[in-house]
């Protein structure tokens, strides 16, 4: 879906749905997922429809994912970090204990 222009940024390992993924330093979680051909970030709480990012600047809230166990994170507003564990948000968020 997307390819990278030549970029000096360092490579960063992270984890999506239990699979090892690679990002570049400075990527948002959303950019890193799109670069790895992930289009569906969540399913909706109402109908369960698949959704992916629309605006990538923090407005639409379509890119909500679970990051390191915390639900409702805006993937476009969080910078990816080494070892991050990212999961799709399925339906309504679950409040962790």
């Amino acid at each position: 879906m997307f390819r990278r222009l030549p970029d000096p940024a360092g490579r960063i390992p992270f984890d999506f749905e239990g699979e090892p993924f690679e990002a570049r330093a400075g990527d948002s979680v959303a950019a890193a997922l799109l670069a790895n051909r992930v289009l569906t970030f969540r399913t909706t709480p109402v109908s369960g429809a698949p959704r992916g990012p629309w605006c990538l600047i923090g407005n639409c809230h379509e890119c909500l994912v679970e990051i390191d166990g915390e639900p409702n994170r805006q993937a476009c507003m969080v910078e990816v970090r080494a070892g991050m564990r990212v999961r799709r948000q399925r339906g309504a968020r679950v409040v962790p204990d």
Partner: peptide, 20 residues
Amino acid sequence: PGVMSVGAAQTLLKSSGLVP
């Protein structure tokens, strides 16, 4: 999924050097 704003594509280019 796969439908984004034009600005979103531009944001990917600016922030991560990503192009379709």
